[in-house]
């Protein structure tokens, strides 16, 4: 697939996933990938902690746009800022201050929680309508929260049946349900809990909201060892068995390997094989239970996230897709 077509297929890409799976890092890497194929990118952080900007060597993002790199801008959306902007735009500018000062706004937004989310989604929609970039990548809250975040328009339609907030909710829902304008990219790691959560979140996003799901990004995939059929998650019986109890002694006797080293190699081989097998089983489960294309991103053993390298890997994955 042409990466450019992938990125421009919808204007808004909502990147979602459980905490700790690398969602923010991959959002940034996707942004770099899109910029590298010549697209203008806006990275959006929702009430974030500055992680998105950190990848570009910047401090925390603000409500106003910041240029992060060539063709990449970023901004952080907070509900309070969206609200003030929104009130100003709805003839309530003069009353904004007293409403905020009296705490009325706080009590209402806290007591009708969907409002915060609607304000944020409304802003994303406004950015989309204004065509502020070719690609808008949104780092959504962690998956449990992402679900309630994206479900809020529907909930709010039940609670608030008129007024501008109702209009906002309707408009937000239209954006979320329009496959030509918006899609969700789920991020997971090939581990039991994140995979389970991804499958559940995917179905609920589709069933309960009607969101369009893009490919699943599988992060931290251990490299395949060349001599094994790792796709099935089972060792190829024709391959040499790393559990071979003789191997260790043979290395010491025949190859003159240090005894401690031979033992360490044996242990590492067994450990690595089990982790890889466990991973492949999870990828297999994901594939079987969630019929979506997937993009795999390799494990970084040194723990350093080189965003440029990640972007290239994603582009390679998209081209091969």
């Amino acid at each position: 697939m042409d990466p450019s077509a992938f990125f421009t297929g919808t204007a808004v890409h909502l990147v979602a996933g459980k905490g700790g799976v690398g969602r923010t890092t991959l959002t940034a890497a996707l942004g770099i990938a899109a910029a590298r194929v010549g697209l203008e990118v806006l990275l959006v952080e929702i009430e974030g902690r500055g992680g998105l900007a950190a990848g570009f060597g910047h401090r925390a993002l603000g409500y106003e746009e910041t240029v992060l790199a060539e063709r990449i801008r970023g901004r952080s959306l907070r509900a309070e800022d969206c609200l003030v902007e929104y009130l100003g735009g709805h003839g309530l500018g003069l009353l904004t201050r007293p409403m905020v000062d009296s705490g009325l706004v706080e009590v209402i937004t806290r007591g009708t929680p969907g409002i915060k989310d609607i304000l944020l989604l409304g802003k994303i929609r406004q950015l989309e309508q204004a065509r502020c970039a070719d690609v808008i990548l949104v780092d959504t809250p962690a998956s449990g929260h992402a679900l309630s975040f994206l479900r809020s328009p529907q909930g709010l339609l039940d609670a608030i049946d008129n007024g501008p907030v109702n209009d906002q909710a309707v408009a937000a829902l239209h954006l979320l349900q329009d496959a030509a304008r918006c899609q969700v990219l789920l991020v997971t790691t090939p581990e039991e809990t994140p995979v389970s959560e991804t499958i559940e979140t995917a179905y609920r996003l589709e069933d309960e909201i009607g969101l369009h799901l893009g490919p699943v990004l599988v992060n931290g995939v251990l490299a395949r060892t060349p001599h094994r059929d790792t796709d099935t998650g089972h060792s190829n019986p024709d391959d040499p068995d790393p559990d071979d109890p003789d191997a260790e002694g043979r290395w010491v006797r025949e190859l003159g390997i240090d005894r401690d080293l031979a033992h360490a190699v044996q242990q590492a081989a067994v450990f690595g094989r089990r982790r890889r097998d466990a991973q492949r089983r999870q990828v297999l489960r994901l594939t079987e239970q969630l019929p979506l294309p997937r993009l795999e991103v390799a494990h970084r053993p040194d723990g350093i996230d080189d965003l440029g390298a990640l972007a290239e890997e994603l582009l390679g994955g998209l081209r091969a897709w």
Binding site: L87, H90, L92, L95, P98, M99, S102, L104, V105, I108, T112, I115, A159, I160, D161, N162, G163, P164, V165, N166
Partner: peptide
């Protein structure tokens, strides 16, 4: 203020 809030979120809410 309450009237303004009602305009924002709707009077029912």
């Amino acid at each position: 203020l309450l009237r303004a809030a009602a305009r924002l979120v709707g009077s029912v809410a």
